[in-house]
């Protein structure tokens, strides 16, 4: 009970601290912090339009967060979701624009292609770590830059739609193949992908022997070897699954929002997912509310711009502060008196 309270209260406290610090920052630039908070709330959750905009942003974040959360079970810190999202999206666009058939079939092919490519990309970092001892955090970060370069090269070169003049894009996947909205809502179906993927991952981690084995590897790799677990396979599998989730986020962005792969895909959802995963303490279920919260904050950027004449990147400052306070608050874990059970 106390451990659960600690797991919830520490990140919530850190978020409050981040809001306070952001308020100080707003005071310094001459804005009323209370008005800013009110606008963030209004822009994120204050109306049905705000909710729709929040959910649209939360959808890819739930998936990219898994790219950090699943490998984290096996003790890896992976920040390669951005690259997996881009290449996954590119693969989805390439498949979507070339495969003919029923829309559902095309969509399934797009999703599979995106997941395979995204998964393979992040597995590169896992393989480097397992076989050569390369730090997976650094390698997955660097793989992001390689992915961006590769993405730009392909979108502006071999895969470019000649009709896309000002904004180089791949061929469009076609209106019929787009993911639609939830009936009666202006929220695309990609959100369902995220929710289902999170639930499945939570079941995998919490309730299956595979997830248990992953957590043993993450907790103590020597104990895992003693138990005869296939450590390399588990590490690669975790990276592959995480990468598949991020790749699927790319497919959702292409199939539900942009209709083709282009520079709009480079929107930072991969990095935001890392933030989501850390705030959620790498718990796939907690990823959902946290993604919603950060989606709301991101969605409110426009409000701040319109009403207070602040650049819409101001909310990135809030995100950055939140990341720092969360990481700092992690060090308090187990050190606060209130949460330490009295030893018998």
């Amino acid at each position: 009970m106390q451990r659960t309270a600690e797991a919830v209260l520490i990140p919530v406290g850190a978020l409050c601290a981040a809001l306070l610090l952001f308020g100080v920052f707003m005071l310094l630039v001459g804005k009323d912090p209370l008005q800013v908070y009110a606008l963030i709330y209004k822009g994120g959750f204050g109306s049905s339009f705000a909710w729709q905009s929040t959910l649209a942003r939360a959808a890819p974040m739930t998936l990219t967060a898994l790219c950090a959360a699943i490998p984290a079970q096996a003790g890896l810190v992976i920040i390669g979701a951005e690259g997996a999202l881009l290449l996954g999206g590119l693969a989805a666009a390439a498949v979507g624009s070339s495969v003919a058939g029923a829309p559902l079939l095309v969509q399934v092919c797009m999703a599979l292609a995106a997941m395979v490519v995204g998964g393979a990309w992040v597995m590169l970092a896992g393989a480097l770590r397992h076989l050569r001892g390369v730090n997976e955090t650094i390698s997955s970060l660097l793989l992001n830059y390689i992915a961006i370069a590769l993405f730009n090269h392909l979108v502006e070169g071999p895969l470019r739609d000649p009709a896309s003049l000002n904004k180089p894009s791949t061929l469009p996947i076609g209106e019929v193949n787009m993911l639609g909205n939830f009936p009666g809502l202006d929220v695309h179906l990609g959100l369902a992908f995220g929710v289902v993927f999170c639930l499945l991952c939570w079941v995998l981690v919490r309730h299956t022997s595979v997830g248990f084995a992953l957590r043993i590897v993450g907790g103590n790799v020597r104990a895992a070897r003693l138990a005869g677990l296939p450590v390399g396979l588990l590490l690669l599998g975790a990276c592959g699954l995480g990468g598949a989730a991020a790749g699927l986020a790319g497919m959702v962005e292409v199939a539900a929002v942009h209709g083709a792969a282009n520079a709009s895909l480079v929107a930072g959802y991969g990095y935001a997912g890392v933030l989501v995963s850390f705030i959620a303490r790498h718990n796939p279920l907690a990823v959902l509310p946290v993604a919603l919260l950060l989606g709301g904050i991101a969605a409110s950027g426009g409000q701040l711009q319109r009403h207070l004449d602040l650049p819409d990147a101001s909310v990135l400052v809030l995100q950055g502060i939140a990341f720092m306070t969360i990481l700092a608050a992690e060090s308090l874990r187990g050190k606060l008196r209130w949460f330490t059970p009295a030893e018998a």
Binding site: R215, I216, G219, N220, R222, A223, L226
Partner: peptide, 14 residues
């Protein structure tokens, strides 16, 4: 039963 079982045969947080 390896030496230092906490470090060699257990996951401390589990």
């Amino acid at each position: 039963l390896p030496e230092e079982p906490l470090g060699n045969a257990c996951v401390r947080e589990m």
